[in-house]
Structures are given as C-alpha cells and as structure tokens.
Design a protein around this nucleic acid. Structure first.
Lengths: 163, 163
DNA sequence: CTCAGTGCAAAGGATTTGCATGCCG
DNA sequence: CGGCATGCAAATCCTTTGCACTGAG
C-alpha cells in the first residue's frame, strides 16, 4: 500500500486542493483510530481545528477518495479512511454501549458473498455495486454486566442505537 | 404471519399504549410501501397527521417492535415494518437517483452468511448479533441515461449519498 | 499578489420537547 | 374522570454557509 500521506496529498493536488496541516491531522487521527470516528472524537484528536473546518475538510477528503463518511452504525455520523487506505472490513456495533469495532470476514465467505450480491444486483438491473455489511449485537463487556459498564456511551436525548 | 394490525395493537397495549387511527395509518402506509419511507413520504401518505405526532408514534412503534428505523441508506432517516411483519430482506440503493428497492438473498447464501457472521461475532466476544446488509450501485434507469432521469431525487445541499 | 483555507458567528434542516387540549377506556 | 394522544410552537442538535482574515505558492 502506497504511503498514506503521499497519496492523499496527490489526490488533493489533482483536485486543486492543498494538503494542509489540518487535513493531515484529520488523516492521521483516522489512521490511528481502531474504528470510525465521530466528529467529536475527531475534534478531540485534532487540537485547534475548528469544527467548520473539519466538516469542510472531510467533505474535500471524501470527494477525493481519502475518507469515507458513514451515516449509519449508530445515530452519529462517523468517518474512516477510504478502502484504498485500509483493508476491506465491516463493523461490529454493540447495541448497549455503542462500542464499534472493525472486522474482516474470512476471504472465502467474503468472496462468495460478493459473487452472490453481484448476481442479485444484476437481476435487479443494478450495476457496479458495493456492499456495506454491519453487525449489531452485545459486546462481551456488556453481556457480562447487566448494565452498561462505566464510561459507556450514553445515547443522547431519547435517541437509541438504531441497528 | 399473524394479522398485522391485530399483532401491532397487541404489542402496543402490552406497553400501555393505544393503537390509534394515526398509528394505524402509519403502519398501513409502511405496509403498502415497496421500500422504506422517509418522514416526508410518510406524512404525505398519512393525511392530517402532525409531524411531531408522526415522530412520537414512530418512536412508540419502534420501541414495541412494529417499526424499524433506518438511519443509513442515504442521508434521510427511513422507516419500514419490523422483520416480524415482513420478510428478512436487504436494500439496493441507487447512488445516482436515490431509488431504494428491497431484495432477498438466495436462502443458501443468506444461511452461510449468517453462520459465518455468528462465528466472527463470537470471535470478537459479541453475542446475539443481527446483520444489516445494503448494496449501493447504479440502477438500470440511471445507467441507461447518462444523467439522472427526470423526477430523480436531487440530493439536498452539498449532501450526497454516502454508501 | 492571488486564491484556497480557516475561524467565528449566523443560518438551516431534521428531530425533539413543552404545553394546553381532545379523546378513549 | 384520568391518562394517553395530538397539534402547534418553541427549543435542540448537528451540519452548512457567509464573511473577513491569514497563509501558502
């Protein structure tokens, strides 16, 4: 895999954009994370970056295939590096505490899934499909304790995890 | 499959809620739809229902397992009947026009996927998982015409389909 | 010099909540 | 009667935009 920053910079330059300190900080934060980050987590990791700049930078990074925006998983929008810079993976979401982990499927299963999906898509007249697969369950920590562990995410307002 | 309204009514009563006209209208609209509906589509289908009531009713219906809320697919939250009242299915999203269709996978593939996912989840200490699988591609209509067909969804603001 | 990038504050849009009233059990 | 349900309006929360200023090429 080519160097993350080199490639990201190239892609932005091709779009007449600069690979600035703030943008590099975002990419670094995403690369260091173990799963997709929320805006708040990202801001915490990129000290001094204004929220509006973060949103604008993420838009640019997404447009150029450096970052991927996930609107699902839970009620927060999350961001992760695009697949060009990370292994093809899926998400494991704890419906109790909100923890999110990445995982990869056994290659044989991934392959048969892809083959099956391609034919299903074709049958519906859809072409060029990509898939998104997530799991929702209860993580070990939460199933051990009846209640969510201390420090667990509490869902803001009346909102609850959706999937 | 037991009668939709009877069962829905039972579930609400068990939660000390009433199965009112407005709630029945929501369930009818979702049952008649060919795919998950947005709030706007739902309001259009339920004449006279206040938006705040719709949100509140959907919350109740979701809490009692009648409705499922989807926060992904595109940038709009969508609602569909819970799986107890519909076949286990997935979603096919056109990234160009926003069209969303339901589809079911071949049973053998669905079964092997579930088995594989269960073991992956177990390996990560997660139990009791359900999966969510969606496809994003280009529908036949959009791939035929270079541009999105008339009447196609236009993505509001700078937002674009995410998955 | 010029144009993209940034921060701050205001604007937007979807969703939630407060409150008074209507209606079912 | 008592409590859930509903409408309307106000409040929130996340995200986007307007604008003036800074900075890199």
């Amino acid at each position: 895999m080519p160097d993350l920053h080199d490639t990201a910079g190239e892609r932005l330059r091709a779009d007449n954009q600069r690979y600035t300190t703030g943008r590099r900080a975002i990419v670094d934060a995403l690369a260091a994370a173990e799963g997709p980050l929320t805006m708040q987590e990202l801001l915490d990791a990129c000290d001094g970056l204004a929220q509006s700049s973060a949103y604008r930078n993420l838009t640019v990074l997404e447009r150029n295939g450096v970052v991927r925006r996930l609107s699902a998983l839970d009620e927060f929008t999350r961001y992760e590096l695009a697949e060009a810079f990370s292994e093809h993976h899926h998400h494991l979401v704890c419906g109790t505490c909100g923890r999110i982990e990445d995982f990869v499927m056994p290659p044989s299963l991934e392959a048969s899934l892809e083959a099956g999906l391609d034919s299903v898509a074709a049958a519906h007249g859809f072409g060029d499909v990509t898939h998104e697969l997530d799991l929702v369950g209860t993580c070990g920590r939460c199933s051990a304790s009846n209640t969510a562990p201390p420090g667990a995410l509490s869902w803001p307002g009346s909102r609850r995890p959706v999937r």
